[in-house]
Simulated assay, not measured.
Amino acid sequence: MTARNGRGLLHLAAALDQQAAYDAASSVELARLAEYGALDFVTLGDTFARPGLDALAVLSRIAPATGRIGLVPTVTTTHTEPFHVQAAVATLDWVSRGRAGWGIDVSTSEGEARLFGRRHAAAADALWQEAGEVADVAARLWDSWEDDAEIRDESTGRFIDRDKLHYVDFEGSAFSVRGPSIVPRSPQGHPVRVVDATDRHARRTAARYADVAVIRVAGPAQARALRIELRDGAAEFGRNPDSLRVLAGLTVDLGDGEHAAEPSHGGGGPRQTAQGPLYRGGPVDLAELIASWHEADAADGFHLTPVEPRRDLERLVNGTVALLQHRGLFRTFYPGSTLREHLGLGRPANQYAAAGGTP
C-alpha cells in the first residue's frame, strides 16, 4: 500500500515495558489498545540484569487475548541455548497464529555471566557475532521441517514424512546444534527478527539477519544515514534491501496533552538523552515529527516507547495515530493476519526444500 505522499505507508510499533509489573493483565490491556490503533507490533523488553517477568511468556499470555497485532519479546542470545530459543519463538508464532517476532539482544555484563557460571562476559563485537550465528541457525531449524512434513496418516500410522525433515549440523564460535527442530515450521515460516542497530557492533548482524532494525538517533539526517548504511549492508550480504524495515526508536512523553512540543523536542528533532532520543509534547506535534521524518526517507516508521505506558499509549493511539491515518500515512485496519503481512514482508521459502533437501 502507498501513502498519499507516494511513499509506502508508515510502520508503527510500541513498547509495553512497565516498571515493576508482575501481572500480565496490564500488558494485555496495553496490547489491546495498541491493536485498536492498528500498530504493526508491540515489544516487551527482557534482560538478565534486572528482575521481572519473562517477556516471551507474557506475550504468550497476550496472544489469545489479541487477534492481529504482532508480538515481539526480547530473547537474549547470550548464555541461552540456541535450540531452545528458536523453539520458544516458533511456539509463540503458533500460539499467535503467525504474529510472532524475536527481539535479538546480547548480555554484556559480568554480573549476568555469573548468573550462569559458564563463561565470563565477552566483548560486544564477539557477542553480536554469536548473535548472528544464533539467528542463522534459528532460520535453519525453522526450515528443518518442510511445510507439509506432517502427514498424520492414521491408516499407516505415519505422522511425519521423513524425507521432508532435514537435519541441521551447525558449528558456531561458542555452540553447536545437531538435528531438526522439535517444532514444525510455523505459520510465518520464519518469525520476524528485530535488532536494535543503534550500537555499531549490532549493525552487521542487523544488516545480515534482521527483518526490522531499530535505530535511536535524535535527528532525521542521522537516521537517514544509518538507514542507508543498513540497507547497503543488506545488499552486500545478498539480500534485497527492501526486505529490511528500518524504524526510528523514540521515547515519548505525552504528559502535556495538546501542548506544543518543548524546544528541542519537536520540529528541531527530539532531545538526545543518556537513554536515547526523547520527545516531550503533544500528539499533534509528534504526528508532524513522524510525518516529516518519513517524508525525508529517514525511516520506514517508528518504534515508540511511552514514558507513562497507559497514559501515553492512549494519547498516541487516539491522537497521533488518528492524525496520521487522516493524512493517509498509516493504515486504518489490518489488511492481513500475520506480522509479516503487516510489515509488507513475504513468507520465506524453505531453504532445504528449495535446495532439493540438501542442508
Rank of each mutant, 00 (worst) to 15 (best):
A3T: 06
G8M: 13
H11D: 09
H11G: 02
A13V: 05
A15T: 14
Q18L: 14
Q18I: 12
Y22F: 15
Y22Q: 06
A24R: 10
V28S: 08
L30N: 02
A31S: 15
R32E: 13
L39K: 06
L39H: 08
V42N: 06
D46K: 12
V58M: 11
L59R: 06
R61C: 08
R68L: 10
R68M: 03
I69T: 11
V72T: 03
V72R: 04
T74A: 14
T78W: 06
H79D: 12
H84F: 12
A88I: 10
S96E: 07
R97N: 14
G98T: 12
W102S: 00
D105S: 13
S107T: 03
T108N: 00
A113S: 03
R114T: 09
R118K: 02
H120M: 06
A121S: 06
A124I: 03
A124D: 01
D125P: 00
A126C: 00
W128C: 02
E130D: 06
D136T: 11
V137Q: 01
A139Y: 04
A139Q: 11
A139M: 01
R140T: 04
W142D: 04
S144Q: 10
W145E: 06
E146F: 05
D148M: 06
E150C: 10
E150L: 15
D153C: 13
G157D: 11
R158H: 13
D161Q: 08
D163R: 15
K164F: 13
L165R: 14
F170A: 14
G172F: 05
S173I: 05
I182L: 15
P184M: 11
R185H: 13
T198C: 06
H201C: 04
Y209H: 15
V212N: 00
V212W: 03
I215D: 00
I215M: 05
R216V: 03
V217N: 01
G219V: 08
P220T: 09
A221I: 08
Q222H: 05
E229V: 02
E229Q: 07
A234K: 02
A234C: 01
A235F: 01
E236K: 13
G238Y: 00
S243K: 05
R245L: 06
L247F: 04
L250T: 01
D256F: 15
P263T: 14
S264P: 00
H265N: 11
G266K: 07
G268F: 14
G268I: 07
P270V: 12
P277Q: 08
R280E: 10
R280L: 10
G281V: 06
G282C: 03
P283I: 09
P283H: 15
L286A: 07
L286S: 10
A287R: 05
E288P: 00
L289F: 09
S292R: 15
D297R: 14
A298Y: 08
A299H: 07
T305L: 12
P309M: 11
P309S: 15
L316S: 01
V317K: 04
H326C: 10
R327T: 02
G328I: 04
G328K: 05
F330W: 09
R331N: 05
S337K: 04
T338Q: 02
L339H: 02
R347W: 04
R347N: 10
P348K: 11
T358Y: 14
